[in-house]
């Protein structure tokens, strides 16, 4: 068998041939033992190669590589920090003014929204992998929360803790926060630390 035919058969195994050419190969396979044997060998080799290296892709990503992406995220944060700070001060000012004006009923509603947001944050920390943004609408068109777990680690007393970033939008007032929460039970996460970015 020459290399040209080997290339043709390899392309057949690799799914590179069109329907007509593939049929031509199958016709040869039916009648020629040497061709069939080569195709089986190549097919097996492909499978063996794929299996040999598959475990590497299932492993956890090393911290050194995670660190590169994380560092980049941090530098993004540093770039937007002055704007975030100004926005946060504006949010605080608005919140203070609004707090004075709110009657009991409105405060009650706000507390419910915040409780709902805490629940959604906990659900996100419980289920969503680091680096993925979970977006929730709390009150359609009025309040929404986006949470992104950033990093997961285990404390010395074996508790799971996660760093997260979140963006809370309450009626157009946007607040960006970063925090650390630790798991205290199933889908229960207690904030260890949180603050505006």
């Amino acid at each position: 068998m020459n290399d040209e035919k080997r290339g043709w058969l390899g392309a057949y195994v690799d799914g590179e041939l069109g329907a007509q050419e593939s049929q031509a190969v199958r016709n040869v396979l039916d009648t020629d033992h040497e061709t069939r044997s080569y195709v089986e060998k190549i097919r097996g080799l492909n499978e063996a190669l794929s299996s040999a290296y598959a475990p590497i892709a299932s492993e956890q990503i090393p911290l050194s590589i995670h660190g590169v992406v994380h560092r980049y995220r941090k530098s993004l944060v540093q770039r937007v920090l002055p704007f975030a700070l100004a926005a946060s001060l504006a949010v605080i000012a608005v919140l203070l003014i609004r707090q004075v004006a709110l009657d009991d009923q409105m405060q009650d509603q706000l507390a419910k929204i915040q409780a709902q947001m805490a629940l959604l944050r906990a659900q996100t920390l419980e289920n969503v992998p680091s680096g993925t943004v979970a977006s929730w609408s709390v009150v359609p068109g009025k309040a929404r929360i986006e949470v992104m777990p950033v990093r997961t680690y285990r404390t010395a007393d074996s508790r799971f803790c996660r760093e997260y970033e979140e963006r809370v939008d309450e009626g157009g007032i946007v607040e960006v926060r970063r925090g650390i929460a630790c798991r205290s039970g199933k889908a229960e996460w207690a904030d260890l630390r949180s603050g505006m970015m």
Binding site: Y53, A54, I56, A57, S58, E59, I61, I65
Partner: peptide
């Protein structure tokens, strides 16, 4: 998402 394939 691509890192596992790139590591392999």
């Amino acid at each position: 998402e691509l890192i596992p394939r790139m590591r392999r």
